[in-house]
Simulated assay, not measured.
Amino acid sequence: MDELMTLIAVGLVCLLVGAIIGYFVLARIKPEEQSRAALEKQFNEMQKQQQDYQHQVSTHFDRTAELLNDLAESYRSVHNHIAEGARHMHATGISPLQPLPEGRPVLEANPATNKPSQQPLDYAPRQPGSKGALHEEFGLDKSEEDVKPPMAPHL
C-alpha cells in the first residue's frame, strides 16, 4: 500500500510540474503575444525610420538654403562687378546699372512673421443690393427698349 501511495504522489507531483511547465511554454509561444511583440517591434522601427527621414529632410533644406544664399551672393558679386566695370568704362561715368547692397543674406533664416495671406476666393464677391456674378442677368443692362422677342426668319 505504501508503494501505491508513493506512486500516486509521484504521479501527482509529475502532473503538477508538467502543468506548470506547459503553462509557461504555452504563454511563451502564444500567437497573440508573438504578433503583438512583432507589431511593437515593427512600429518602433517605422517610428525610427520616420524620425530619420524627418532629420534628412530638415538637413537637406538647411543645406539647400545655404547653397541658395551662396548662389545669390555669387550673382550679386557678378552684378556688382559688371556695374562697377560699366561705371568706369561708360563715357559719362554714369552707369545704368546700380550695384546691389552687400552683406545681407538673400534668404533669411527666420522669415518675417507677416499675417498669412488669405486664400483666393472661388467666387466673385458681390456688392450689397446688386446681382452676384452667378446671377443670370449679371453684367447685362436691359432696358425695355432693348428687349425684343426673337423673330422667325422669312423664307
Rank of each mutant, 00 (worst) to 15 (best):
E3N: 15
L4H: 04
L4T: 11
T6R: 12
T6Q: 07
T6I: 12
L7N: 10
L7K: 11
V10P: 00
V10H: 07
G11C: 08
G11S: 14
L12K: 08
L12F: 03
V13M: 11
V13I: 15
C14Y: 06
C14A: 15
C14P: 02
C14V: 07
C14W: 02
L15R: 03
L15P: 01
V17E: 05
V17F: 14
I20R: 04
I20E: 12
I21D: 02
G22Y: 13
G22H: 12
V25K: 07
L26M: 09
A27E: 15
A27W: 09
R28H: 14
I29C: 01
I29R: 14
I29W: 14
K30L: 05
K30P: 00
E32Y: 05
E32T: 14
S35L: 10
R36W: 07
A37S: 06
A37H: 09
A37N: 12
A37W: 08
K41A: 15
F43Q: 08
N44L: 07
E45D: 09
E45C: 00
M46G: 04
Q47L: 08
Q47E: 14
Q47Y: 06
Q49A: 11
Q51L: 12
D52T: 04
H55M: 02
H55S: 06
H55G: 06
V57L: 13
V57W: 06
S58C: 04
T59R: 07
T59H: 06
H60P: 01
F61P: 02
D62K: 15
D62L: 09
R63I: 14
T64Q: 13
T64Y: 09
L67S: 02
L68G: 03
N69H: 07
A72P: 03
S74R: 11
Y75E: 11
R76H: 08
S77P: 00
N80F: 04
N80A: 11
H81R: 07
E84G: 03
E84V: 00
G85Q: 13
A86F: 04
R87P: 01
R87G: 02
M89S: 15
M89H: 15
H90Y: 06
T92A: 13
I94H: 06
I94A: 09
P96G: 10
L97K: 01
L97H: 09
Q98C: 03
Q98T: 14
Q98M: 11
L100Y: 05
L100W: 11
E102K: 15
G103L: 12
R104Q: 14
V106H: 11
P111G: 07
A112P: 13
A112E: 15
A112N: 05
T113W: 05
N114K: 03
P116I: 02
Q118K: 09
D122F: 03
D122M: 08
Y123V: 13
A124F: 03
A124V: 11
A124M: 05
P125C: 03
P125Y: 06
R126K: 15
Q127G: 02
P128H: 12
G129H: 05
G129Y: 04
G129R: 10
S130M: 06
K131P: 00
K131A: 10
G132W: 01
A133E: 02
A133I: 03
L134Q: 10
L134S: 05
H135V: 01
F138T: 00
F138Q: 01
G139W: 00
L140C: 00
D141M: 01
D141N: 03
K142F: 05
